[in-house]
Simulated assay, not measured.
Amino acid sequence: MTSSPTASLPRRVVVTGATGKLGRAVVAHLRDLGLDVLAVDRAGGRDPRQVEGEFMLVDLTDYGQVVEALSGSVDEHDGPADAVVHLAAIPQPGLHSNAVTFANNSAATYNVFAAARALGIRKVVWASSETVLGLPFDSPPPYAPVDEEYAARPESTYSLNKALEEEMARHFCRWDPELVAVGLRFSNVMEVEDYAQFPSFDADPQARRWNLWGYIDARDGAQAVERSLAHDLPGADVFVIANADTVMCRSSASLMAEVYPGVEVRRELGEHETLLCIDKARRVLGYEPRHSWRDHV
């Protein structure tokens, strides 16, 4: 059943990266809430027919195109944005050269932040990444569950850019004290059809150690975006966003003991408790995962 948007949510939202796994879920979820959503992705990217409703092809590395999209000044697209959800990026290391990945992702995020500032849009939610926590954890994490309390540890060009985006957001908020900028450090995004492979992960605990056996159901990722759009505390903040459990059938404690025996585990762990700590997102945003792969296998 479709519900009406609450007073705390913006009326019109631009969502970039709208045809990706997470983007599709976010667009559908926000529209189900009754929000007016302009879905945006890049020319030459995924098929726009994957996203129903209002859609526009935008090259986010072109500042002028970003301004037009956010300002509502493109023919047949109505009205300026009240908020922007920036999910677009080259999504992982190795798809392009390091220089291409950095040039694309840094320019796209800068242009979104700068255009929002120029247009007086004071709510920006963007996809940071679990990778800033130190993935692929070839060097063990400082402790577990990992959280937002230690400094970013980028280990790739992709991750370096995400760490710089977080710093960029802090300065945009310093320049505009009314800006609310929320960075979501999403874990590995999964859809229901991905879950059939999960039971096979138990055969080799090393295979998924690179992100401490974490994941995020796309629907719960969309919920985190909704909660972030309702967040009204000015300033820049970042949150780890993962599901409440791991991808494994084995216990979280046994995984840490076998794979990272020298790493401090800072609390008694629930049987399958995520090792990507979501306590801050729960406390500040009211985020609570509603889905698990275990419900589908």
Rank of each mutant, 00 (worst) to 15 (best):
G235H: 06
M248I: 06
R122W: 03
D202Q: 04
V180S: 02
R294A: 07
A151G: 09
R46M: 11
R49Y: 01
V146W: 01
V84K: 03
V26K: 01
L179N: 02
F55N: 00
S129K: 11
L22I: 12
G17R: 10
A39R: 02
G23D: 07
L30C: 08
A118L: 10
H296G: 04
V27G: 03
Q197E: 15
E268R: 13
L285M: 12
P142V: 11
Y110K: 08
L33C: 09
E273D: 07
A116D: 02
V265E: 00
D202M: 06
V26Y: 01
R24S: 05
A88S: 13
G34V: 11
H231S: 13
E130M: 11
K21S: 12
S228Q: 07
N104A: 15
A43H: 15
I241W: 07
T131A: 15
H296C: 07
T2E: 10
L9H: 05
P91L: 14
N243D: 15
G23N: 07
T157Q: 06
D82V: 06
V14M: 06
A81E: 09
R31L: 02
D59R: 13
D59A: 11
P93W: 12
H29Q: 12
H171G: 04
W175A: 14
A81C: 08
W126T: 06
R250F: 04
A88L: 10
A152C: 12
A115R: 02
R24V: 10
R42L: 10
G44V: 11
G34T: 11
D59W: 09
L229T: 01
G53N: 03
G20N: 08
N161M: 14
P10S: 08
V180N: 01
E226C: 10
G53A: 02
I121S: 02
M1H: 13
F172R: 07
A236S: 15
R49W: 01
Q50A: 14
G45V: 11
C277F: 01
R117M: 08
E68V: 05
D32L: 12
A83W: 07
V284H: 01
R46L: 15
M190W: 05
A181C: 14
V100D: 08
T109S: 15
L135M: 14
M248D: 04
D202N: 10
V240S: 03
R282P: 00
L22S: 03
N98Y: 08
T2A: 13
S139W: 09
D82A: 04
V182T: 13
R31E: 10
L9P: 01
N188L: 10
R208Q: 14
V146Q: 01
A230C: 08
L9S: 07
S228N: 10
I121T: 02
I216M: 12
A236K: 08
A118M: 07
R283L: 11
E271H: 08
Y110H: 14
V259H: 04
E264W: 05
D245V: 05
V51L: 09
T6D: 09
V74L: 13
R170P: 00
R266S: 09
V182G: 03
R227Y: 05
H296P: 06
V284Q: 06
C173T: 12
P91S: 13
D232A: 14
L22R: 00
L233V: 15
A28P: 00
A218S: 14
R283T: 12
V67W: 03
